[in-house]
Simulated assay, not measured.
Amino acid sequence: MFKGLGGLGDMAGMMKKAKDMQDQMAELQERFDQITVTGESGAGLVKATATAKGQLTGLDIDPSIFQPDEKEVVEDLILAAIKDAQTKAQERAQSEMQKLTEGLGLPADFKMPF
């Protein structure tokens, strides 16, 4: 009568894996606040530091670029460094997520809903 439902015993194992994954995801989200990346532009004249969540935490500008007639260049360099830091933050976050999913036996291309 219950033929075909033999896999229900695996349901408890699946639920435990899901709970473990949820716990690991929470830990990873907390770690994203501590992981930092640095983006650069202008051969390192402008550096932007961000968390793996993409929040800008620091900006370092070499004083040699402060020429009044090059204001637009400086602004462009700042924006480029920030964009570079945000891109690196996103890549780092994806890398950390991939490590987590691989450790749980999920496919490498598995996408999390967040």
Results as ranks from 00 to 15, higher is better:
Met1Cys: 06
Phe2Arg: 15
Phe2Tyr: 14
Phe2Ser: 15
Lys3Trp: 14
Leu5Ile: 04
Leu5Gly: 07
Gly7Asp: 00
Gly7Asn: 05
Leu8Ser: 13
Gly9Glu: 14
Gly9Ile: 07
Gly9Arg: 00
Met11Gln: 09
Met11His: 01
Ala12Tyr: 11
Met15Ala: 14
Lys16Gly: 13
Ala18His: 02
Lys19Pro: 11
Asp20His: 01
Asp20Arg: 11
Asp20Lys: 06
Met21Asp: 08
Met21Cys: 14
Gln22Pro: 08
Asp23Ser: 14
Met25Gly: 08
Ala26Val: 15
Glu27Val: 03
Leu28Ala: 00
Glu30Lys: 03
Glu30Cys: 05
Arg31His: 03
Phe32Gly: 04
Asp33Pro: 14
Gln34Ile: 09
Ile35Ala: 03
Thr36Asn: 00
Thr38Asp: 11
Thr38Tyr: 15
Glu40Ile: 09
Ser41Met: 13
Ser41Gly: 04
Ala43Ile: 10
Gly44Asp: 12
Gly44Cys: 12
Gly44Phe: 09
Leu45His: 10
Val46Cys: 06
Val46Pro: 01
Val46Leu: 02
Lys47Cys: 00
Ala50His: 14
Lys53Met: 12
Gly54Tyr: 00
Gln55Gly: 13
Leu56Lys: 10
Leu56Glu: 14
Thr57Leu: 13
Thr57Gln: 10
Thr57Ser: 15
Gly58Gln: 06
Leu59Trp: 04
Leu59Ala: 06
Asp60Met: 13
Ile61His: 05
Asp62Thr: 11
Pro63Arg: 01
Ser64Glu: 06
Ser64Ala: 08
Ile65Trp: 02
Phe66Ser: 05
Asp69Ile: 01
Asp69Leu: 04
Lys71Gly: 12
Lys71Ile: 09
Glu72Phe: 12
Val73Ile: 11
Val74Gln: 07
Val74Phe: 11
Glu75Pro: 05
Glu75His: 13
Leu77Phe: 11
Leu77Ala: 10
Ile78Met: 10
Ala80Glu: 06
Lys83Ser: 02
Ala85Lys: 03
Thr87Ser: 14
Thr87Phe: 06
Lys88Gly: 09
Lys88Trp: 04
Lys88Cys: 01
Lys88Thr: 05
Gln90Gly: 09
Glu91Thr: 03
Glu91Ile: 01
Ala93Gly: 13
Gln94Asn: 12
Gln94Thr: 07
Ser95Gly: 05
Ser95Ala: 06
Glu96Asp: 03
Glu96Pro: 00
Met97Tyr: 08
Lys99His: 04
Thr101Leu: 05
Glu102Ala: 06
Leu104Ala: 11
Gly105Val: 04
Leu106Thr: 04
Leu106Ser: 12
Pro107Met: 01
Pro107Arg: 00
Ala108Ile: 00
Ala108Val: 04
Ala108Trp: 00
Phe110Thr: 01
Phe110Lys: 00
Phe110His: 10
Lys111Gly: 02
Lys111Ser: 14
Met112His: 06
Pro113His: 05
Pro113Asn: 05
Phe114Trp: 07
Phe114Tyr: 07
Phe114Pro: 05
